[in-house]
């Protein structure tokens, strides 16, 4: 039977790729070392499939169609944005497991939108690029939660979708060793007048809630408060909440936190362990 062996929360800031030398060498090294730590842990845990939870940024999807929750079940490549400076490459999808998660959702209350063939944006491509080498055998299953474009998904629903995916893994007859990435955040103001600011106090409040396993504190945060205190990009904690729902009762070990103004973002890295 398939097994959930790990969970990680990490940034997907596009400027990490497009402006790699913008921050101080010390901050850049801290962030790159954190990506390397996640990569190392993926290997140590013998993970063979990573569910990567991101959100679109009006890049893949537009005003004509904004999926609330989407799973990629077929061919995948990325990134979509040429300005990242990364080569667009195919990624391996665990199509059989992705389709099982899809069907489990259909049968148990998640009406997924489906991508049969998709070019991923930075929210999923960046974490994959910086943690899984091109010659890695680790497969990915991209999931998009709409935390980026109004009207956004609720925190509670994000958590439920994570739970639904966990149940799907537990009902899968394969032998996969599965991990999840909740990507994005922490505080940042994308395109807003405050872009470049970082709310360190708010970021650390979020990280502490995860460290002690208090996901209800995060779910109770209202979108309007998050938007006001920490920017539109901070709503991406919904991606993190999805990962927390997937892991269930868990605690977080903080790998790294850096407030990187040059990358306009609070960059947090956490490993999740079942309590």
């Amino acid at each position: 039977m398939a097994e959930i062996v790990g969970g990680f929360l990490l940034p997907h800031d596009p400027l990490i790729a497009s402006a790699p030398d913008a921050p101080s060498p010390e901050q850049k090294k801290a962030v790159m070392d954190a990506f390397a730590t996640v990569s190392r842990r993926i290997a140590e845990l013998k993970v063979d499939t990573v569910i990567v939870v991101g959100d679109d940024h009006y890049t893949v999807f537009g005003p004509h169609c904004i999926p609330r929750a989407l799973i990629a079940i077929g061919d995948i490549e990325g990134p979509a944005e040429p300005w990242l400076g990364l080569p667009r490459l195919p990624f391996q999808n665990n199509q059989a497991l992705a389709q099982h998660i899809m069907q489990h959702g259909f049968d148990n209350g998640v009406d997924w939108a489906i991508a049969k063939d998709i070019t991923l944006d930075h929210s999923t491509s960046i974490p994959i690029h910086y943690t899984l080498s091109q010659d890695s055998d680790v497969k990915t299953i991209p999931v998009y939660i709409n935390s980026g474009v109004e009207p956004v998904i609720s925190n509670r629903r994000s958590y439920q979708i994570g739970e639904n995916m966990r149940d799907a893994i537990n009902s899968w007859q394969g032998n996969e060793r599965v991990a999840i990435f909740g990507t994005g955040g922490l505080s940042h103001w994308v395109g807003m007048p405050q872009m470049g600011a970082v709310n360190i106090e708010w970021d650390k409040t979020v990280l502490e809630a995860i460290r002690v396993g208090d996901v209800e504190q995060l779910i109770a945060m209202t979108d309007s408060d998050v938007l006001e205190q920490s920017g539109n990009g901070a709503l991406e904690i919904k991606n993190w909440i999805t990962a927390l729902g997937f892991m269930g009762d868990c605690r977080g070990e903080i790998i790294e936190y850096q407030a990187v103004h040059e990358w306009v973002c609070g960059c947090g890295f956490v490993e999740l362990a079942v309590a």
Partner: peptide
């Protein structure tokens, strides 16, 4: 209008990320 989209539009018609200081 989505500020995320405004920034993408601005960069597309104003010279890419080099034009972000004027956007801000």
């Amino acid at each position: 209008v989505s500020s995320m989209l405004l920034m993408l539009f601005w960069m597309a018609v104003s010279g890419g990320d080099q034009s972000l200081p004027e956007y801000m």
